[in-house]
């Protein structure tokens, strides 16, 4: 039986994989951080579908606000672009 939650969860599984690969392929570090935040949102949906709603909430807050916030702070204090040489 496939209902709406499950369908979203299946899409989110793909979203997690794509987001993770895409995040590490970026040259722009800020964009990489945002992509990893998007991956966190998808992960929160999967947690919801796996019957752990409390973890879904925690992951949504931590993975999209707190972790990217810390890393973005680090990027602003260092540099934004990946060096090429």
């Amino acid at each position: 039986m496939i209902d709406a939650v499950m369908t979203v969860a299946y899409i989110m599984v793909i979203g997690v994989a794509v987001g993770a690969v895409a995040a590490l392929l970026q040259k722009d570090l800020l964009r990489a951080v945002f992509l990893s935040g998007a991956e966190s949102i998808a992960l929160a949906f999967i947690f919801q579908a796996l019957l752990a709603p409390d973890l879904g909430l925690t992951q949504a807050i931590v993975g999209t606000v707190l972790l990217p916030g810390i890393i973005i702070l680090g990027i602003f204090k260092t540099r934004r672009k990946d060096e090429d040489d």
Binding site: A20, L24, V33, S36, L67, I71, G74, T78, D82, E83
Partner: peptide
């Protein structure tokens, strides 16, 4: 890149 290493750690 150190920042990318950190992002990889979160993944």
């Amino acid at each position: 890149n150190l920042i990318k290493k950190i992002i990889a750690f979160t993944l």
